Amino acid sequence: MRTVSDDVPVRLYHLDEDGGAATTLLYGSLMDALAAAAAQPEDVQAGLFLQTSNDVVAYLDFIEG
């Protein structure tokens, strides 16, 4: 992910592995999205993605650096 500022606007969404449906969990700052993602169960975290205006990254890839 190119953007690293805590206040950059992001979309946090979950991608359903069965049907491929994307469910938005949050539109907010990166800091808020990371907190919301961390509060999810591990099996949900595996399907979470962070989207900025110019990039998308899997949540687990982002936190593993």
Rank of each mutant, 00 (worst) to 15 (best):
H14G: 12
E64I: 00
G20L: 06
I63F: 02
D16A: 09
L30S: 06
F49N: 05
G65L: 09
F62C: 02
R2S: 13
I63N: 04
D7K: 02
V8I: 13
Y27D: 09
E42M: 09
R11Y: 07
T24D: 14
L50D: 04
F62Q: 04
V4E: 08
G20S: 08
V8R: 03
G19Q: 14
V4F: 05
E42F: 05
M31W: 03
A37M: 07
D43G: 04
Q51W: 00
D16K: 11
T23V: 12
E17P: 00
T24R: 06
E64H: 01
E17Y: 09
L26M: 08
T23R: 13
S5T: 09
A21G: 01
E42P: 00
Q51G: 04
A37V: 07
M1E: 10
E42Q: 11
L26Y: 09
L26E: 07
V4A: 05
A36K: 12
P9K: 03
T24E: 14
D7Y: 02
T52I: 08
G20R: 12
T24V: 15
Q40Y: 00
A22D: 14
A33R: 03
L34I: 11
V57T: 09
S53R: 14
L48P: 01
Y13K: 02
V44K: 06
N54W: 05
S29V: 07
L50S: 03
A35I: 04
Q40V: 06
F62M: 07
S29F: 01
D16E: 15
G19V: 12
A21F: 14
A38R: 09
G20Y: 10
A35C: 04
L25N: 07
Y13F: 15
A21I: 15
E64W: 00
D16I: 10
A38E: 10
T3H: 13
Q40E: 15
S29L: 04
A22S: 13
A38M: 01
S29K: 01
L25T: 03
I63V: 15
A46L: 02
A58P: 01
V56D: 00
L25E: 12
A39S: 13
T3A: 13
R11A: 12
A37H: 02
D6I: 03
V56T: 14
V4D: 05
G47T: 11
M31E: 15
A58H: 08
Q45K: 11
T23D: 14
N54A: 11
A36Q: 12
G65P: 00
M31A: 15
V8F: 11
Y27Q: 11
L34V: 13
T3K: 13
V4H: 06
H14L: 15
V44S: 11
H14M: 10
L15R: 15
I63A: 02
